[in-house]
Design a protein around this nucleic acid. Sequence first.
DNA 1: GGTTAACCGAGACGGTACGTCGCGTCTTTAC
DNA 2: GTAAAGACGCGACGTACCGTCTCGGTTAACC
Lengths: 193, 193, 193, 193
Amino acid sequence: MPTPDPGRRNERARQAILRAALELLADSGYADLTVEAIAARAGVGKQTIYRWWRGKGAVILDALVESATAGAAALPDTGDLRADLRAVLRGTVAEFADPKLSATTRALTIETLSDDRLAEEVRDRLLRPQLAAVADRLRAARRAGQVRADVDLDQVVELLMGPVYHRWLLRTGPLTDDYADAVVELVLTAVAR
Amino acid sequence: MPTPDPGRRNERARQAILRAALELLADSGYADLTVEAIAARAGVGKQTIYRWWRGKGAVILDALVESATAGAAALPDTGDLRADLRAVLRGTVAEFADPKLSATTRALTIETLSDDRLAEEVRDRLLRPQLAAVADRLRAARRAGQVRADVDLDQVVELLMGPVYHRWLLRTGPLTDDYADAVVELVLTAVAR
Amino acid sequence: MPTPDPGRRNERARQAILRAALELLADSGYADLTVEAIAARAGVGKQTIYRWWRGKGAVILDALVESATAGAAALPDTGDLRADLRAVLRGTVAEFADPKLSATTRALTIETLSDDRLAEEVRDRLLRPQLAAVADRLRAARRAGQVRADVDLDQVVELLMGPVYHRWLLRTGPLTDDYADAVVELVLTAVAR
Amino acid sequence: MPTPDPGRRNERARQAILRAALELLADSGYADLTVEAIAARAGVGKQTIYRWWRGKGAVILDALVESATAGAAALPDTGDLRADLRAVLRGTVAEFADPKLSATTRALTIETLSDDRLAEEVRDRLLRPQLAAVADRLRAARRAGQVRADVDLDQVVELLMGPVYHRWLLRTGPLTDDYADAVVELVLTAVAR
DNA sequence: GGTTAACCGAGACGGTACGTCGCGTCTTTAC
DNA sequence: GTAAAGACGCGACGTACCGTCTCGGTTAACC
């Protein structure tokens, strides 16, 4: 596969494809998200998709990365760890609770579950930055003496995010701000100094 | 859907189908798990599958429920909460780490992500009993004065399981016994008295 | 196959099946004429059909034979050969032109085309008597000196009926009384004395 | 049905499909003539068949038209009407008597009997030209004073062909050269001058 | 500023699986 | 033993997408 020359790439087509994918997901969900539907809605040939992406999973990932990068990069640090963590978890919960946004995450999750390579790219390009931002905030808190020195911060991040993903994935309960706050409280009890 | 008379159901066919589904998943993964393949391996007509299940997702669920019910029902209670929770999480971690068993869970997760009805059935028939068993163990510990009285035990269960699911789903790190133990430690710090 | 005992046969079921077959054909044509539909409409199990008939073709044949036998057995002989032949052909033409009756013939024809055994039974039980009746009428005419002595009367019957079947089967023109009369005229020219 | 652009059509696939259909009919008869079998033998996807034809009936028709057009277009005119008509009928009889060729006609007839649209196409594209050729020969004979002026030549054609089709369809007797000659004789008696 | 190679839209192609329908057989229960 | 009921193994149906391919028709870089 002779990787195509990115210099010749049609930017209009690229954006139309990413947009079409997100719109289809928001409108009709994963079931109608086919490569043919994306191509048709974007007014693009199927080959143009396969030329630049490995499949629809990669398209969703790019669309998500693009819109995520447009958003926040780092976490706010108000000095109040509890408040900052609540803001993060409430944000995550809100994202999962929103049907449109959730549809995209759901679709990407399906794709990653049967495509290891995509899973790694999602982790490295989409998840790691988000989780690292939270870890950074915790690191700052530790420096400020608000967090115990003997905990692995990456594990703490997973202790925070895990329950939210669990509840989203397995539908074990409602994804509300209260739940986000409760998780923060438990985690702080475990790691605060 | 005029559900057919279960009295007329062929038990041999039912078991052959469940078995075939699990074998296919163990042998070749989700990609080769088609209704046609299940039918072929089970020596059964496709219609026999569609007569009793809504699709391959429902078949996997039944297969899993059947094999789960055969296994453990309640959690052991050695009196040592830390040890018991470690055993649970190590078991979950081991299940996720095993390629064969994990393939089944992965497949079922894919199906639930695009089938709300199936998702609810998975939650109610497969997950709730497992989570309830852990909650029961925590309740016993609380009665024994080992756990704080002011925590929601269901939330604690999610605090335990969430990180493991997170790591499995998003591949953010290795699923080892050490990780299971670390999570238990953090959670105990949060809720132990 | 141990031929079932006709003595135990349920006459009500037999008639319901024949009636259901004819009704289905009249109502919705060959496409909806399935063994299952016949059984359902007749309020009968499928096995009852397969116990007594080789398939739906045989059912149609029986239904047709039953209703044909109920009708005319022999041809009228008014002494006027032309008039009598016209009556026969006009009758055949009318039958073919009628959508309900034609549907039955059409269905039976389809079945015979892929079932040699059925074809022979149709010929012997349904067609031969009809054609023989016409031949008999011609024989009487020959005795009366109205028909040449050197023609094969069976061939003359086919010369009469053939064109009508041809036009029905191949839709090469309208099936009208005029056409019936025209054929009679040509045939009489060929064989009248 | 948005008929696709014929300019993009793959000629190799088209011919492979027509050939496969004829071969299947010749080899194993109508029972084994399924769209799937045609596709498999032609090395083609099923969709390629459904893209260009309405079903297997249309495929058979095209195959037959193609091979018929390759053959004779008009009838020979030796000046001897009796000889020419005998040649035509003997040809038809031979075609019907040949198992391979007859299988094709039989299959097309079945299809035609449950598909009005196909029936019209068969009549217009396959039958009409053949019947018209015979009518033309009769017209020439009439111009030559060998045929009565007051007969409808199309009716005469049906008087010729009808009995042959009748005998083929209803199996009322053997399809031999003698029978062809006998029909010609009767018809000539009716229309010769 | 003309050539030429890659991209582009379009969509046909060989495939695979879908979910449905009907076949003819088998099994169960009732009469 | 016949009957109603209907599940069963089977196989074809016609459809939907997959990922690849081929076809003109633009571009855009390089001579």
